[in-house]
Nucleic acid binder design. Structure first.
Length: 305
RNA sequence: GCCGCGGUAGCUCAUUGGUAGAGCAUUUCUCUGAAAAAGAAAGGGUAGGUGGUUCGAUCCCACUCCGCGGCA
């Protein structure tokens, strides 16, 4: 390999379940190794959706630049493809400053799209078509896709309407769903996973939620609904911003009690953390650590070589 | 004390005279422009207890225990 400046490019990635302390670790590593943080969170990309997504505060950033936060208005739906584009830009910008980009977040799909370079067909979501297709049964959808693309049908989940609809959407526009293309990053990547046992994580999630409530999380939700000037968001849209927003919206509409809100949040967040771990577990590149010290050591070795 | 209602999976509840199901929870898994999303699979109950009727009871009957509501 030719030794040149580009070979000094290295990306550190921090993954882990919700509430595991990724953001804090990212800031710590950024401080220590002259880095900038790039968030990998599908909800924190939205403006005004702050407390309930655990978005890092200015103070917590400790002067470290953070990217991919507040990059979209909450009214519009953000997607992986946009995420990948913006993130690659942010990474390159960071390299230009001779700093280490630290990709940090819990949205496995977004991270995979960046580091493995999942190239998704350039077919934009067609919400009108989706709306129409949503009325159909999965069997009908499956049959429709089968007619359009005999290959994709073989690997797709037969009972998953969302996947079927997207496949149909692509096939309708360009004939069939192209094979998955991957464009991995041309520089080394270290992936650190923050490990927590079940009980620890459960406590962290609970504590964090109570903290958010004290910080005015419910007020934030109400403000989304009824902002001072502009038209507010629908409850339906608010519920899309994640588990806490969903349960809070239901509570604020008097559909569930406060107690139910707390219980539901805990259960769903626990399940979410589990799903995240299911995703991360299969990636054998991840170095799982229990302490920040261990993470620092890994980063140091990675950057030295 | 009396009357009524109920006691079936961890929870909420269906169901049937031929040994039971759902939703949620639990465990595991999937992942091609919604991913805190959308899906899949699995484990789990001898139907409060005892006795009786019956070829056979979780379901019918009696007694008993427990919970809830009402009356006194």
């Amino acid at each position: 390999m030719i030794k040149s400046k580009t070979n000094n490019r290295k990306l550190i990635t921090i993954v882990g379940p919700t509430a595991s302390g990724k953001s804090e670790l990212a800031v710590k590593l950024a401080k220590k190794f002259n880095g900038e943080v790039i968030s990998a969170d599908s909800r924190q990309v939205y403006k005004k959706i702050d407390i309930g997504t655990g978005k890092i505060t200015k103070k917590e950033m400790k002067g470290i630049p953070h990217h991919l936060l507040d990059v979209a208005p909450p009214k519009n739906r953000f997607t992986v493809v946009q995420y990948r584009k913006l993130t690659l830009k942010a990474i390159n910008k960071t390299f230009k400053k001779h700093k280490v980009p630290i990709l940090c977040g819990g949205t496995g799909f977004y991270i995979q799209a960046v580091i493995d370079g999942i190239v998704i067909p350039e077919i934009r979501p067609d919400w009108e078509l989706r709306k129409k297709l949503e009325k159909k049964s999965v069997k009908e959808l499956y049959r429709t896709l089968k007619k359009l693309d005999s290959k994709r049908v073989k690997t797709i989940e037969k009972k998953n309407p969302r996947r079927l609809i997207r496949a149909i959407e692509i096939a309708k526009k360009i004939g069939r769903v192209p094979d998955l293309k991957k464009e991995p990053l041309p520089y080394p990547v270290l992936i650190i996973g923050v490990k927590k046992n079940k009980k620890e994580l459960e406590n962290l999630i609970k504590k964090r939620f109570f903290k958010w409530l004290k910080q005015g999380f419910l007020k934030e939700v109400l403000k989304l609904r009824n902002p001072p000037a502009d038209k507010g968001l629908s409850w339906q849209r608010i519920e899309e911003f994640g588990i806490h927003y969903r349960t809070a919206a239901q509570y604020l509409q008097n559909k569930i009690t406060e107690k139910e809100m707390l219980e539901k949040s805990m259960i769903e967040l626990r399940n979410y953390a589990k799903r995240q771990m299911t995703w991360f577990k299969r990636d054998k590149r991840i170095h799982w650590v229990k302490s920040q010290k261990k993470a620092e050591k890994l980063a140091k070795e990675f950057l030295a070589n």
